[in-house]
Nucleic acid binder design. Structure first.
Lengths: 106, 106
DNA sequence: CTTGAATATAACCGATAGGTAATATAACTG
DNA sequence: CAGTTATATTACCTATCGGTTATATTCAAG
């Protein structure tokens, strides 16, 4: 099976996640939004399901897909040790901005 | 060219990033650590370079590879809108823990 | 129990990625 | 400049992935 990163490497799958971030959607709705064939869409949804990115609720013939946070949290955790690479820079920027006189009309 | 996620989808490349997080390394050092052929290693380094994950310093015949933060920051930024999916849960946990009596001997 | 709607699965195909072995390039060493 | 070391590039092979079309499944409606 694929890793979390493999799943996210696919642009269409990232678009699906974007769409599901707004609200749960049926397959047909996703097909329309993506401009991809129904089987193609279902295939991506299968990958997302198998890897825990989404879950499905069935409602008659419709399947409602919705986001699950776990795999994205995993990415967030993976990033953690790398954050020190830029965290200090951000801190410096923040201190700099804090030290500036308030002048909204830039 | 590949996207940031494509680059990270490759396990060997993630291992390289891990190794470079500790300190800059020469190609030979990476070859040893990865147990991969030299050309294979160079190929991955090329991808990492082309996508801004690493930069190279030359020192005679040796090339020292070191991390660059930008692409990882990009991932961090990509994650931002999704964080609300679990941020509230973490907040709740935090509030819960804060409300507990201090009792280190759990 | 047939029909139609919504979705999933299967079979197939072409492009791409990652691995290896072979070769090229570049720089120091004498 | 010949030899050696360190790395990059090329050529090639195989496996996998994403797309499509065709088909199966499931459920509601009549």
């Amino acid at each position: 099976m694929a890793t979390t990163f493999d799943v996210l490497a696919e642009p269409t799958r990232r678009r699906i996640l974007d769409l599901l971030l707004e609200r749960p959607r049926s397959v047909g709705e996703l097909v329309d939004q993506l401009g991809l064939s129904q089987p193609g869409t279902s295939k991506h949804l299968r990958v997302l399901r198998d890897n825990g990115f989404v879950r499905v609720r069935q409602d008659a013939q419709r399947r409602w897909y919705e986001l699950r946070p776990e795999p994205l949290e995993e990415i967030d955790a993976w990033l953690a040790p790398y954050r020190r690479l830029w965290a200090s820079r951000l801190d410096a920027l923040e201190r700099h901005l804090d030290s500036m006189p308030d002048d909204d009309a830039g």
